[in-house]
Design a binder for these strands. Structure first.
Length: 220
DNA sequence: AATTTCAACAACCGCAACATC
DNA sequence: AGATGTTGCGGTTGTTGAAAT
């Protein structure tokens, strides 16, 4: 793996005049790759004072970074619980299954995979899995076979191709989802299985930790 | 050996939701 | 109830090392 802190030169970024989060608009704020010294400052500070209050944290920790940058660095790299290294085949399999269920809800997916961050999973998806699915003739957005005929309507009226799983998706894989829904219902005392045919419900539901096992068992 | 292209991933941005005053 | 600040998310970009030419 490349050393993320190997360069001390800040990455040039596009400038914007859009009103934005205050911590990002300040002049004199350092950008680009983090140095080992900065990592140590942030790590030591969070271990001592705890994570949070990101806006004021940089000043308190003696860092010339914006709060957003500090939070991102902590969440994606410095947190002790972050697992480094290659995505294992079983993790890849789980990502695929969860993405089929949840769409691009990276934080939700990451929440079900211990030690992996949303950024890591998003990157892995974009650089590996989406290409892998395409090479297998599967649309990475819908997890359905790629349609060779662009004129045929793959997405019925009102369906947003960019969104997560649609009701049509759910219907077409109805049996699988029904099994999941039944198991979830049994486990968490839910009664109306029709809710599981509604993508809006999936968007709203905070999936409990036990869901992992249910997904695994129901879809294998 | 030098240059170009590709792949991987860290980091930034805008936005929205939520919290606080 | 509205304004302001904070946090978190997803999309995107830029840098860098590896591979190919």
């Amino acid at each position: 793996m490349r050393n993320p802190s190997s360069s001390s030169s800040p990455m040039p970024r596009k400038t914007t005049t859009t009103a934005t989060t205050p911590c990002c608009s300040k002049v004199g704020i350092k950008r680009g790759p983090w140095t080992p010294e900065e990592d140590e400052l942030l790590s030591n500070y969070v271990k001592k004072e705890g994570a949070g209050r990101w806006r004021t944290l940089p000043k308190r920790a003696g860092l010339l970074r914006c709060g957003k940058s500090c939070r991102l660095r902590w969440m994606n790299y410095l947190r002790p619980s972050v697992k480094r290294g290659r995505i294992a085949p079983d993790e890849e399999d789980l990502i695929l299954r969860l993405h089929r269920l949840l769409g691009n809800r990276w934080s939700l997916i990451a929440g079900r995979i211990p030690g992996r961050t949303d950024n890591e999973i998003k990157n892995y998806w974009n650089t590996h899995l989406s290409k892998k699915l395409i090479s297998q003739g599967i649309d990475p957005r819908t997890h359905k076979p790629l349609n060779p005929n662009p004129n045929s309507s793959q997405f019925p009226q009102g369906q947003n191709q960019n969104s997560g799983p649609t009701s049509v998706d759910l219907e077409e894989t109805g049996r699988t989802y029904r099994v999941i829904a039944t198991k979830v219902s049994q486990t968490f005392n839910m009664t109306n299985l029709d809710h599981y045919q509604n993508p809006m419900v999936w968007q709203m539901v905070t999936i409990p930790a036990e869901f992992d096992a249910l997904v695994m068992s129901a879809t294998k």
